[in-house]
Design a binder for these strands. Sequence first.
DNA 1: GCAAATTTGTTCGTATGTATT
DNA 2: CAATACATACGAACAAATTTG
Lengths: 304, 304
Amino acid sequence: MAGPMYRQIAQDLRRKIESGELEPGARLPNEMEFREEYDASRNTIRDAIKWLIIRGLVETKPGQGTFVVRQLEPIVTTLSEDPDTGMAGGEGKAAFAEINKRRAQRDEQRRQEREKAMLGDGESPAADQDLGGRPEGEPRASAPTVEVKFAPAYVAERLRIPDGAEVLVRHQEFFIGRTPWSLQTTFYPFDLVSRGKGAPELMRARDIEVGTVEYLRDTLGLVQCGYRVRILVRRPNEAEARFFGLPDDGRVPVVSLIRTGYEDTADGPYPFRLTITVLPADRNQFVINSGKYPEELAAPARDQ
Amino acid sequence: MAGPMYRQIAQDLRRKIESGELEPGARLPNEMEFREEYDASRNTIRDAIKWLIIRGLVETKPGQGTFVVRQLEPIVTTLSEDPDTGMAGGEGKAAFAEINKRRAQRDEQRRQEREKAMLGDGESPAADQDLGGRPEGEPRASAPTVEVKFAPAYVAERLRIPDGAEVLVRHQEFFIGRTPWSLQTTFYPFDLVSRGKGAPELMRARDIEVGTVEYLRDTLGLVQCGYRVRILVRRPNEAEARFFGLPDDGRVPVVSLIRTGYEDTADGPYPFRLTITVLPADRNQFVINSGKYPEELAAPARDQ
DNA sequence: GCAAATTTGTTCGTATGTATT
DNA sequence: CAATACATACGAACAAATTTG
């Protein structure tokens, strides 16, 4: 036959899950029942379930059982500028407007689909069962924390300041309703913040409503001439896993958006701001637009 | 103490790996030796090692042993247009130019660092030990495969064609030297390809040297007015894991770049091309530039 | 609020299979 | 072919988390 027993068991369960025979959220038989069903030892059953856990198909809860995981509906963030507002997406509050816009689009789309379905079979199809599991509620940001620290190597390199130089660190948590959505940390060279008359608002633990880029331009005359975003995928660290409620193994990666803002100097564009935004990769997608493109976004489907 | 024994053992080994006490590529003691060292059963040792495997810290090879994994040095791809060439990055051959450019930059940077180090201590520091593990060799593309298929749902939706309509599918594999780098699949509505006098080159299994966007403009008068790239992260499917040589559990995710090209019509921008590029997430990073930004790229470091 | 039942988690021991050197 | 090292599979006992009565 095909490979070890635990893999055959796992494959069989996988087929049942992917075919829909076992629905998202459904409870699987317990280990003893599986033991009889597949005529294998408990440890072998457990190996099969571990195989499914690693692949994100099921999750176990002590004292409760094993469950088919519910796929989360991705939130889509636009990284290119909005030609209307000129705002760069993916940055804290700027992204909230987009979330609300897309959500309205999506709801309208669904309403139409439902209407069409109603005409078809007459029967109301379990209305709002929401198998997808979409975070609901208002977008919301925590109060910023403000610190002055010595720059770690990866920050110093990007801000082109000496290793260990002081940086002002602003950190914020973003939520959609009660669901954690993103973590954002911004670094400014401390020298810069104390230029001229300084930028006092930056040191305070409250939102800068006008946006930091505008604030720095108005107070310090610091003009952002351009920026660069680096996108990378990695395993979450412990704090991130805790905040997002991700499993403590690294099987759900995070996307890290590293944005460096530049000001124009005699030596060319020079970095003055570094913002790192971290989001869980299993519930976020990103979009870059160029030229003329449709206003509406296709559904955030998978590509296979 | 803190939690189950296998976790304590795993934590201890993790510390040794992250502190550098165990270097990348180093062989760990075998299971029996660990059994003595930690005074635990073989199964417990194996549980500890499994914990490390899931997190990508070590890998096991039957008959050989357990090894600390070598981190791969990421390849950086620019997704925004190059203002000089106007080329959109991340698309097949267009990206090769960038790889070569960045590589030259990187080598120069390293040469300078080495020179500086030589002045400092006089001792030659193990020269080119290349702990990073960077794919070497010339960028190279496989011959394209060409098929006509019925559009799967996710393709039909993005191309706004009926579900199951025919599409022309071109597929290519990209390598750097002998290392697999990316998989790329492009879908065209079949109706479009047979417009007017048709686009015969598109049906042939060979490279279109001028680039497909230019070719379609010249033959069909099809002008791309804009595009949208959607970025998502997911587990590789079986074929992708095989091609990239990824572990067959899903612990190394892939990044999927879904690019829709639009032409200008009376109804607004309408999709005419869909390109899906898939790359392993553990060895690729992406960059988006806007406005004025430095020519050179900071090293592809991690953000923590 | 507490005790019992249920379910998964951890740890041991042992034997045999499979891949590599 | 033999030795080495990890992989699979079984059985057993107790621990920890959760729900139920």
